[in-house]
Design a protein around this nucleic acid. Structure first.
Lengths: 256, 256
DNA sequence: AGCCGGCTGTACGATACCGTACGCATCCGA
DNA sequence: TCGGATGCGTACGGTATCGTACAGCCGGCT
């Protein structure tokens, strides 16, 4: 039994990923958009927009960081590698943040591995330019530090979430965060890949997905997930969704 | 069956906590000890040594931070509060670090609650003095940022540990980290309190403790745990112990 | 049109932990 | 010396995953 819940097979839910449309504006990243015109005029010329494929790695732990990436319409994943070789996500980064937070803390070596989770584009800045701007521009520094704090908060929340909340709840949270980051309701993701992100079995994800689909929250087919009922999905997610969302909002609030 | 494993009842394993001995040297904190003489001469006069009782709170989330605490022979705990009111540890801080990492990232509001886990002393600096020193002293800033990175790394590791590792392993890790932070093998802790730190039931901790005691790794009685066999305990802990330990060492290495 | 590879449905027992509960040991203060 | 309070041992059924396995289905390629 696999009710298709209104998903026709021919529906082209997601635009072709490598479609040859022009690269998006760096200002799609909320941090870059929050900069003053003056700072933007200094920063943007140092950046280039880069398209990333799924699973494309941008940092390997214990190797030098070369760039600082500000996702635009991509989602990046930062993972810890266990002794078994298994990986476990410690942060996801979309247009609300930047990947190499340690670079804002004077680090030059990546202490985690990061790769592209949802294909798209990032605005990329060489780490030297990033550091130079941090040093010389208080506005830039302040904003970056806020983003670092938001990231720290989200990782802390993840630690408690991983300990306390059931797989379905975490799955729902993941879907909602991804929707917020991408600004759309459908993504190309396989259960296999989701299992990797959520630190669970593929079979476990399939079951959680079935639960949410039966409840009418989502619909999915081969490699595509679509959010159907936002409110219902939110109700089935854990409070960590709201907490992370709020952390992001605080990051972009002036009075903080 | 509760084999006492060489613990005689009269043995005074742990010195009385509130014993009237003189307060310890702030340089018991490794960060403060790592500062140059010149910087220390500026920083130490602004600090005071404060004794903390178990469960004494030093920060409440969403309230202003007043001080920055560098543990000397205390261990502090930073926790997230869930909607149910339950708390979940997101970081433990001993003499290798300082509690209010966000203060080094220009924050003035605590975003988490923190309290004293193992009673002892902290070297306390008013947050204004801390910020002033950060601004004016590159050496100080560099060291603090390294400590922030170590803390971020440890929280990330905790996120994966909470997801992937069994309670006994996490318990063993906790014991080893605590030993390292305190420089002794016995601590006053109840199973109840440990359960709170590990995000588990009291009964679950009792069982894990029994397992480790039967294996000869530890010995315990009412409110006291003692590490017996370091190697055996390490073998039963997860890799996260080593990872956290290494993060601390890197923090204190010059070439980074 | 047909095939093959990747993705998903589903099952099995095993395990780790939960929530709860109750009894007993130990310690402390009256 | 004797409660009372605190801390621990242990048990019960219940549940959420795990690891593994296999079969069915879809979709793209030849």
């Amino acid at each position: 039994m696999s009710p298709r819940m209104g998903l026709t097979e021919s529906a082209n839910l997601v635009p072709p990923e490598g479609s040859g449309s022009r690269p998006p504006d760096p200002l799609g990243n909320r941090l870059l958009a929050a900069l003053s015109d003056a700072t933007r005029a200094r920063v943007l010329p140092a950046m280039s927009v880069v398209a990333l494929e799924r699973q494309q790695h941008t940092n390997i732990y214990d190797t030098p960081m070369r760039n600082v990436d500000f996702p635009i319409d991509a989602i990046m994943s930062v993972v810890a590698t266990l002794a078994t070789g298994a990986t476990c996500e410690v942060a996801a980064v979309g247009r609300e943040g930047f990947v190499e937070v340690d670079a804002a803390l004077a680090a030059r070596i990546a202490h985690r591995t990061s790769f592209c989770q949802i294909p798209g584009h990032v605005a990329r800045m060489p780490i030297d330019a990033f550091e130079a701007e941090l040093e010389s521009n208080t506005e830039f520094e302040t904003l970056m530090l806020r983003a670092v704090r938001a990231r720290a908060f989200m990782t802390e929340q993840l630690a408690t979430c991983n300990l306390k909340h059931a797989l379905v709840e975490r799955f729902a949270r993941w879907l909602l965060m991804t929707r917020d980051r991408l600004g759309r309701r459908e993504f190309n993701v396989t259960h296999e890949f989701l299992a990797m992100m959520l630190g669970a079995r593929r079979a476990g994800v399939s079951q959680a997905a079935a639960t949410l689909q039966t409840a009418g929250c989502i619909a999915y087919r081969r490699g595509v997930v679509m959010i159907f009922d936002d409110a219902a999905l939110t109700a089935r997610s854990c409070e960590c969704y709201g907490a992370q969302r709020e952390a992001i909002e605080i990051c972009f609030r002036k009075d903080n």
